[in-house]
Design a protein around this nucleic acid. Structure first.
Lengths: 233, 233
DNA sequence: AAAATAGTGTCTATAAGACACTATTAA
DNA sequence: TTAATAGTGTCTTATAGACACTATTTT
C-alpha cells in the first residue's frame, strides 16, 4: 500500500497596518497544533488547481476574498516529516493587500488577525510555517526592488508619500522625500496621475496616483546604498 | 473515493555546448507521449522529498549525478487536466551544469541528449513541458543578472572570456571584452584567482579563476543598456 | 611578423544621491 | 503665522560604457 502524500496550499498574505508590516494568521481550532498560530491554508479538493485551493481556504478561514489579491506561488515544502499526522506536501502562495478589513474566523478556526512580523512571532508558528513565512518575506522584499508590487500595498488612489512609507517600512530604511518623488515619477508607466489631490494629515496635500501598467522595474527602486536607518514612529 | 493527485518532479537541466544554450531531454519509451521529447523526471516515491525524487529520476533516466548540480525549485503545475492519465501535479527544478558528458538512457527511455532551445523544440515537448521549460528559462535569465549562477556553467577553473561567453549566449548580446573584465573583477568575492593561466585557442592565455563565495550580485551584471546584438559564430 | 586574445587605463555620458528652495495646505 | 508635507531643481559624486592602448601567446 503506497502512502500517497496529501497536498495543501498555504497563504502568506501581507499588508501594512499601523505603520507596520503584518501577516494574516489564524489560531487553529483543531489538532494538530490546536490553539497555535498558523498561516491560513488547507487541503486540495477534487478537481481544484492549487491556486483555487488557496483562494477557497482563504475565504473559508478568514472571510477575505482572494479575487482582489494576486496569488503568487513562492515555494514548495515536501520534507516527509513536516506534518506529524501523515505525509503532507504544501505549496505556499504570497499575496499582498492594502490595509483591508479585519478578517473573521471560519469553522475550525478560533480567531484570525493581522500580526506584526517579529522574532517572537516566528517562535509561535505551527508546522514549518516560520520557514514558509521567512521565505515568502524574502521574496516579497526582492519583488519590491524588481517589480511594481509596492503599489499593491496601497489603496488606490494613493499619494507618493504613502507609497514611500511602504518602501521605508519593508526595507526598514529612510528614503529622501524629494529623491523618492523624482525617482518614481521618472519611471515611465509606474504611476498614473488620477487628476486629484488628497490629504490625510497636516501639510500640503499630495497628488493622487494609481498603479501604472509597468510591472518589471528592472532593478530601479533598489534601496539607496547610503541608506539611513528608519526613524521609528 | 477521493482521487488523490500523484506528484512528480521534473528537471530543467541547462548547459552550454557548442556555443549554444542546451537543455537535457529524454525520448519517452512509454505511454503517454511515447516517442516524444520530455523533461527528465518522475513520480515521488515513499519517504522521499521532492528534491530527492528529482535527483533519483535524473540518475535513472540519464545517468547524470545530481550531487554535482544544485537543484532549485522553480514552479508548480497543478492544472487538473495537465496529464491525460490521471491527476498529476509536478514540481519543476532548475539545474545548471558545465559542459558534461553525454547522458545515457535508462529504462523506459528511448534516448537522451542535450537539445538546443528554439521554437521548434517547444512544439515537440510532451505534457506541458514547453511551459515548464519556458518558465525555467525566464528564471535562469533573471538569476544570471542577480546571482553568481553564471559561473556554474563553467568547468573550474575557467577564464574570464569563458564566463563572458556564457553571459553573451544566454543574454543573446555582445559584451565589450575589456569592460566585462573590469566589471567582474570589480565585484568583490565573485571570482577567485586560481594562480594559474590557461589557453584553449590562439592568443594570450587568460588567468584561471574559480567561483568566489559571493552568491547575490544585487543587480550588478545586468545587461548593458546599449547592448549590441550577438554576432553569430 | 601577424593574428588573436588578455589585461589596463582613460575619458565621457548618465544616473544616483545630497540638499536646498519654493509651494500649498491645516492649525 | 507657523508647522507640516509636496513639488522642483541644482550640484556633486559614483558608475556604466566606449574605446584605445599595451601585453602575451600561437601560428
Amino acid at each position: 500500500m503506497i502512502e500517497y502524500p496529501r497536498l495543501t496550499a498555504d497563504l502568506v498574505v501581507l499588508t501594512i497596518r499601523d505603520d507596520r508590516l503584518k501577516v494574516l494568521l489564524v489560531v487553529r481550532g483543531r489538532q494538530p497544533f490546536k490553539g497555535r498560530l498558523a498561516l491560513p491554508g488547507g487541503f486540495l479538493e477534487h478537481g481544484e488547481s492549487l491556486e483555487e485551493t488557496a483562494a477557497r481556504e482563504l475565504f473559508e478561514e478568514t472571510g477575505l476574498d482572494a479575487d482582489r489579491l494576486h496569488l503568487k506561488p513562492t515555494g514548495i515544502y515536501s520534507d516527509p516529516e513536516r506534518d506529524p499526522r501523515s505525509r503532507v506536501i504544501t505549496v505556499s502562495y504570497l499575496a499582498i493587500a492594502p490595509n483591508l478589513e479585519m478578517p473573521s474566523p471560519g469553522d475550525e478556526i478560533l480567531s484570525t488577525d493581522w500580526y506584526e512580523v517579529d522574532d517572537d512571532l516566528y517562535m509561535n508558528l505551527a508546522f514549518d510555517h516560520a520557514r514558509i513565512l521567512e521565505d515568502a518575506l524574502e521574496q516579497a522584499r526582492a519583488l519590491l526592488e524588481q517589480t511594481s508590487i509596492g503599489t499593491t500595498f496601497c489603496k488606490e488612489p494613493f499619494t507618493i508619500s504613502e507609497l514611500r512609507r511602504v518602501y521605508e517600512i519593508i526595507m526598514d530604511i529612510q528614503w529622501n522625500q524629494g529623491n523618492f518623488q523624482n525617482k518614481v515619477l521618472g519611471i515611465e508607466g509606474f504611476l498614473e496621475y488620477s487628476g486629484e489631490k488628497g490629504s490625510k494629515g497636516p501639510g500640503r496635500p499630495g497628488k493622487l496616483y494609481r498603479a501604472g501598467p509597468v510591472r518589471k522595474l528592472n532593478g530601479l527602486m533598489k534601496r539607496p546604498k547610503t541608506a539611513g536607518t528608519l526613524v521609528e514612529g
